[in-house]
Write a protein that binds this DNA or RNA. Sequence first.
RNA 1: GGCCCCAUGGUCAAGCGGUUAAGACAUCACCCUUUCACGGUGGAGACAUGGGUUCGAUUCCCGUUGGGGUCACCA
Length: 541
Amino acid sequence: MDYKDLANLIFPDAKPISYYEEKYKPRELKEGAIVTRFAPSPTGFVHIGGLYQALVAKMAAQKTGGVFFLRVEDTDQKREIENGVTGIINSLKDFDMDPDEGMISDTDEKGEYGPYKQSLRKEIYQSFAKYMIELGKAYPCFCTTEEVEEIRQKQEAAKIRPGYYGVWAKCRNLTVEEMADKIKNGEKFIVRFKSPGREDRKIKHKDVIKGNVEFPENDQDIVIIKADGLPTYHFAHAVDDHLMRTTHVIRSDEWLSSVPLHLQLFQEMGFRAPKYAHISPIMKNDNGNKRKLSKRKDPEAAVSYYKEEGIPPQAVKEYLLNIANSTFENWRRANPNKSIDEFDFQLNKMSVSGALFDMVKLLDIGKTVISKMTAEEVYDKSMEWAKQYDQELEKILENKEYALKVFGIERGNQKPRKDISKWSEVKENIIYMYEAPKEYDFDKIQGEDAKKVIEEYLKVYNENDDKETWFNKIKDTAEKCGYAREVKEYKQNPEKWPGHVGDVSTVLRVAITGRRNTPDLYEIMNVLGKDEVISRLNLIK
RNA sequence: GGCCCCAUGGUCAAGCGGUUAAGACAUCACCCUUUCACGGUGGAGACAUGGGUUCGAUUCCCGUUGGGGUCACCA
């Protein structure tokens, strides 16, 4: 009985690994092309940090003429949620980040390196596990969960490093015969990696983002195949990223401390290790403490939040890119109208420490993004959002022709309006264009004086006036009612008049819109049209 | 607790031994302006701390403090 017999006993049907090595040929890409992936588990909604990773991966691949693929890591079937995969795919779609390769729906995929869903790759992992057993680099472990727990407690009591390693790894020293007997007796087992590492030796590694890091070698005999026959993350990572010919593993930095293990796994399996890029997570300030954005506590942790709020995906991506490469901001200023795809993203220029999430800045970007859109685009996107989240707004927007005029106010000129940062603000922003004010709060000129202004203005109002004539008429009205024609005049001798043309404008503005702060009143009146303007002004009488 | 990573204004961040220590968001003032938004100009605001190394440290080294990560048959 030797390792080979043992391997055959455990995985009698597994194919030799040469089969898979043949099947998944090295990719023929140009020098320097980055092949990378987004590899989430379908265990919950997509986290903003996940989107961040995906964006970074996609940008890195795109920049180098590489491949960005989506692999679903569903090896923990207990934690899997319903529609998990669909959720991931739809989230990527919402942000226009479809992968080049990999899963494209819950059941479909594209690409030559699949399956891209780990639960469908069971036999591949078993092949490689068998191979490792043949080499004597992996072994079946018969310890029960309770036994392992017991070992851990002993270690803790004795204040020594916990884990299944060295002398504590009971099963690693069983003879092949003993192992075979136990298996034949039907004893339950899992497969462990036989680590050749030593904790007192250091390993140096250069992470693409974090730079040089030094760790003790891994000496843990970690589980590679679980009781359900599926691999653990570590083993699946090594097998998949080797077979899928991944060049760069871009993942959250909580994995940094597993690098020694992963490198060792690649080494022992005879694979060439990929480069690692560990991304710092996006944090949140919680009462003075930095912590990761939490799925439970922070609504903005879920990417669905941005969709619900109507924050343009474009804005979210730009904000994220801002965090990823600080040069992006300058690039954007120099190239206000270019697509972000043209930005020269640099993986190795990413920050080593975690950034605090800044909603205010995101919204500021949202404003800029929306201000650059045409009225038509603003209409389409608001409508799309309204259909899903705001029926009232949807109804308001029904009349497209009118809505386009509303959205066209002060848009498309040199200094477009910048007052909408997300679609959920649209209704509040335009509602006065759809209904007459219900209450009025005039500022300086009140009561009878306000009525007089309106009365006088109605006498001269003409919907066909150009802007200059229009404003001159307001000045005339001001004069007629005893206010200063020009603000400057007034400021020089404020005691001479009870108010100025600006105050008169305010009366009209409030009478027509119910607000003191609005975009250009001339444009508003034009869009509302003669009848509506007159009817609203007459309400004051 | 062991191991690892990190530390520049409120926030995101340039910086890579000699700088008046950029820029963006936020904030304040002023200007523009019929209001608001925009835009413009300007202001306030930072190298956690203690030791080294050096002619000279924000920058290099060590300690301290603080923050974060990780120690599963979860990923």
